[in-house]
């Protein structure tokens, strides 16, 4: 089994890249691989604990009917597999006030990305636009 390191930059709900990263991580885990995710810049907000689902007034749906996803919930699902390690860039967290995150994510620094990259079978850098 292999280890894949992924670096992410996009903030929640702004880009299809976030969904793609989650899909890749999920598929990798299902194949038995380990996944490291280094969240950089806006991506540190993906794990914020206070994300809350909302109803959809256009569709007239309640919170329950809408079943609105949150990125924190997606990440929690990946972390629960035990095959995903998640580091939020600490400086990026501080400048965003984004420190209240879900269980399982860790604080780190760019050096962690380099270390992971050196230890992994491959590294996927997913920048933002």
């Amino acid at each position: 089994m292999a280890t894949l390191t992924i670096a992410l930059m996009d903030s929640p709900y702004e880009s299809g890249t976030t969904t793609t990263a989650m899909r890749i991580a999920d598929a990798a885990v299902r194949k038995g691989h380990n996944v490291n995710v280094f969240a950089y810049e806006g991506a540190v907000s993906l794990t914020m604990r206070d994300q809350a689902p909302h109803p959809n007034p256009v569709k007239g749906t309640t919170v329950e009917e809408q079943d609105h996803p949150t990125t924190a919930n997606f990440v929690a699902g990946l972390l629960a597999t035990g095959k995903v390690d998640w580091i939020n860039c600490g400086m990026c967290v501080d400048e965003r006030g984004a420190g209240n995150w879900i269980d399982g994510a860790r604080r780190g620094a760019p050096g962690d990305l380099v270390a992971w990259s050196n230890e992994s079978d491959n590294t996927l850098i997913m920048g933002t636009r």
Binding site: A2, T3, A27, R30, H33, D121, N122, G127
Partner: peptide, 17 residues
């Protein structure tokens, strides 16, 4: 994405996103 992952984890593959 399953097949994409098979390529991503190959250590001799250079990935450009």
């Amino acid at each position: 994405v399953d097949e994409l992952v098979d390529q991503l984890v190959e250590s001799d593959t250079k990935i450009v996103w």
